[in-house]
């Protein structure tokens, strides 16, 4: 009996080994990025990988941040991405609720029409979108960068699928009790949507955080430049070693990582129940 238990334990743990190896392979580039950001600049040019720096250079971070206006770039990115996240959470929920729980003529078509924007290549709409932003007087502003990202088609779809599964009986009961729609949304829908909202928050933040082409077109001052624009032009200056570029890359990873940690509990549920099950 004890042998069996031991065998069982052994099989449980032995299954972990190949999995851990796989996970390690996946994480390796991230580990490389992180250790490289502490490496001496010269090491990058010797093309032999030293996994653990023999001498640590935390000053890479300070140096990197002092190039261009990186603290400002990060602040700009944070402001824009937080607004985009908020916008998606609010508007996708509203739209998702409307599309899931109300019938109106053309409601299904509307969903398809919204989803079809996902198939459109972004590159060619840059100029017309810029024209819209220009008409609104939003060139070189936070609302200019964030505006076109405030609602994502996929987010609307996600929320609709999720809210669809909340039994309508609850809503009916609440309506009979005289609750208004906004109150229903707040007290019935939202508490049940935490997981989907976590997914939506994480990915809308990340997508906005990743934006490169759009800010490039709409912004022309350091005051509003986001960090990807600084990171791409990082090498233009003499004396910017790649180790410092990696330091910026690590710093750029941190906010999304922190958001991931904060949302992790809710996320786990979100993935159990997310949209595709419907």
């Amino acid at each position: 009996m004890r042998r069996r238990a031991m065998l069982h334990a052994l099989s449980r743990w032995s299954g972990l080994a190949p999995l851990a190896a796989l996970a390690f392979l996946f994480v390796l580039p991230i580990v490389w990025m992180t250790t490289t950001s502490f490496q001496a600049g010269e090491k990058m040019f010797q093309l032999t990988t030293e996994w653990i720096p023999s001498v640590w250079h935390p000053e890479n971070y300070g140096n990197a941040l002092s190039r261009s206006a990186f603290p400002r770039f990060f602040l700009n990115s944070a402001i824009v991405s937080a607004s985009v996240m908020l916008g998606n959470v609010v508007f996708c929920t509203l739209a998702g609720y409307g599309l899931a729980k109300f019938r109106f003529p053309g409601d299904r078509l509307l969903l398809l029409v919204i989803l079809s924007t996902l198939m459109l290549p972004l590159e060619v709409t840059l100029v017309p979108t810029f024209l819209v932003i220009h008409k609104l007087g939003w060139v070189n502003s936070y609302q200019g960068i964030a505006g076109p990202l405030l609602i994502d088609a996929f987010g609307v779809f996600l929320m609709r699928q999720f809210i669809l599964k909340i039994p309508s009986d609850y809503l009916e009961a609440a309506r009979i009790d005289g609750a208004g729609e906004l109150r229903i949304l707040r007290s019935i829908i939202l508490p049940q949507c935490k997981a989907a909202l976590a997914v939506l928050a994480l990915f809308s933040f990340r997508d906005s955080w990743d934006q490169f082409l759009w800010p490039l077109v709409v912004v022309s001052r350091d005051e509003f430049r986001t960090y990807p624009l600084g990171l791409v032009r990082f090498g233009d200056d003499y004396g910017n070693p790649p180790t410092e570029q990696m330091a910026i890359a690590v710093l750029a990873t941190l906010p999304v990582f922190l958001l991931f940690l904060v949302l992790q509990r809710a996320l786990r549920k979100g993935f159990d129940l997310s949209a595709f099950k419907g």
């Binding site: 840059l126 100029v127 810029f130 024209l131 220009h134 490039l216 077109v217 022309s220 001052r221 791409v232 032009r233 233009d236």
Partner: peptide, 19 residues
């Protein structure tokens, strides 16, 4: 205002397109 070497021409073109 300033841009990277590669972006300046593109920014000016978009500028002409949009006034």
């Amino acid at each position: 205002q300033w841009f990277t070497f590669a972006d300046l021409g593109k920014k000016v073109s978009v500028g002409y397109a949009t006034g």
